[in-house]
Amino acid sequence: MKAIAGRSRIKKENWLWGYSMIAPAMLGIGFFFIWPMIQTFYFSMTRWGDFGTYKFAGFDNYHRLFADHDVWKAVLNTFRYVVLAVPLSVAISILVAVMLNQKIKGLSLYRTLFFLPVITMPAAVAMVWKWLYNSDYGLLNHMLNEFSIQGSRWLTDPQLAPYSIVVVMIWSSIGFNMVILLAGLQGISKTYYEAARIDGAGVMAQFLRITLPGLTPTVFFVFIISLIGTLQVFDLIWMMVGNPSIVKFSTQSVVYLFYDAAFLTNEKGYAASIAVLIFVLVMVMTIIQMVFQKKWVHYE
């Protein structure tokens, strides 16, 4: 009896330790993130007056949201970023990772160079690319002129600007993906390659039959991370396009629209409903990825 009572005392003591050790993190996260999260859902059903007062407005914001051309355009813009930047960046990253997974000269130099954009402040990245893209004085048009190619208005032509931004997104993300993919490549057992060599499989066959399938869990991870990141793009567009701008309509992302409504035009209730839309988009895209992964991801 005594032993059982003692054990249950230790158990209770453990509970106390557990709760007190998680308390600082959980209370902070609860107060600064979870509580505001719940508030956003409530605010999305309110209308805001001039002096920070608000009243319940039911689904008014959502009705407006669904009828708002700017919102749908921003959603389409964001999807365009995702559809172009994510697969291209992941594909290039796989290529780079596979190339850097060999014994070659200058390996660490290459790796450093590819990684440099990852640590660089997006605000600075945006500014230098804006300068490279400058239609009058930019390096890009200058180099094209050298080859007698007519330059373009990379960031001021509404048709072209989104694609110019995609290039910067890819440039910024290759390094991060590459590092994760390299770790994934190192995890593929070498015995597979030895067996394949004995069977006389060529380089291409080895890549397609061993490297790619073995890498799919890592590719999946990189895909999800890039997807979530790209759906929330703000810094690059804010700095490269600016406000106001003639290309704003064709380039602004949903988060940009959210920022606009929340802090510039000061429609906080409407902004909250845009935030909920972003939340739904991220969730839906993640779930779609999770469902489709069964079709292409191979776990050992």
Binding site: M37, Q39, Q232, V255, F258, A262, A272, A275
Partner: peptide
């Protein structure tokens, strides 16, 4: 969840 969901409150 994306950061925008808690940033305003």
């Amino acid at each position: 969840v994306p950061g925008q969901i808690y940033i305003l409150p």
